[in-house]
């Protein structure tokens, strides 16, 4: 932690950033916190989010940056958080010139739990790089199901949905002001469970955008395997369009441009 704290202290005291968005143990709980030069002594208490108390810091940074467009901020990022920053840059939500990542490498245990192919940030200020997990067994398992069985599995999960919108509200990539899930003509309202297509609509929006932090699945009271759905959506985007979600070098999202040529063909009936 010393290395991370020293870096943050330097960034703040030298005025390179106006604040550092990280974590602090407050009221006996690890909570997101904005460290500022005015309260430099707090940096001695800065911590890395415990695995069971990760919050979408990227999402917190958006309104902060919007309110202080001239200021630069440092932010604690794991691999997923940094993929998130890269996507948010592309979608015009954050300015890369104004963001300084303070990088964390995840533990092997965390990487295994997440089935994470990139469990560290591009700079590592805390932790040791572990073995990435190249393939998602959870996705493979669902892919082996017969179509009818897959349908029953997913529908059974969707029927448990209590429409808390937690998957959206916790998602660092959900920055839209108007949400398709609340489109008055396309999604019915007022009843539980919601339309069976609710999660599919969200999956469409997550394709090429989900940075696989897994916060949606962790918050879901109904235990819907959302992460499996979005991992698959991203895998499809990779297969069909060769787009690596969250990569700084992947170019624009396939959904953001028509493309120079049509590389796909229609499926036969």
């Amino acid at each position: 932690m010393d290395k991370l704290r020293a870096k943050v202290r330097t960034l703040l005291s030298e005025g390179q950033v106006a604040g550092y968005l990280g974590y602090l143990i407050k009221d006996s709980h690890p909570l997101p916190h904005l460290f500022t030069p005015e309260n430099l002594e707090e940096v001695d208490q800065a911590v890395v989010a415990p695995d069971n108390a990760r919050y979408p810091l990227d999402k917190l940074l958006i309104p902060l940056a919007e309110r202080y467009p001239e200021a630069a901020f440092a932010i604690q990022v794991r691999g997923c958080d940094e993929r998130g920053l890269n996507e948010l840059y592309k979608w015009g939500q954050l300015d890369p010139e104004k963001v300084v990542p303070v990088g964390v490498a995840c533990t092997q245990e965390q990487a295994d739990y997440c089935e994470c192919p990139g469990p560290w940030a591009s700079v590592v200020d805390y932790g040791e790089k572990c073995q990435p997990v190249a393939k998602s067994l959870r996705v493979e398992q669902v892919a082996t199901l017969a179509e009818e069985d897959a349908f029953q599995e997913w529908l059974g999960a969707f029927k448990r949905c209590i429409k808390c919108y937690g998957c959206r509200d916790v998602c660092p990539m959900c920055f839209c002001k108007d949400c398709s899930l609340e489109h008055e003509d396309l999604m019915s309202t007022g009843q539980l469970p919601p339309d069976s297509i609710f999660q599919l609509v969200r999956a469409i929006h997550m394709a090429g955008r989900c940075i696989d932090c897994g916060l949606c699945e962790e918050t879901c009271p109904a235990g819907i395997p959302l992460r499996v759905l979005y991992k698959k959506a991203n895998a499809l985007v990779k297969d069909l369009f060769d787009y690596e979600t969250g990569s700084p070098t992947a170019g624009p999202s396939p959904w953001k441009m028509l493309g120079e040529e049509a590389t796909l063909e229609t499926k036969p009936m």
Partner: peptide, 22 residues
């Protein structure tokens, strides 16, 4: 090039529907 988007969306959706058994 409007229909470039059509084919992208349809192919993606067909594969997603396949995965979920829809």
């Amino acid at each position: 090039r409007g229909n470039y988007m059509t084919i992208k969306r349809v192919r993606f959706l067909q594969d997603l529907l396949k995965f979920t058994g829809f």
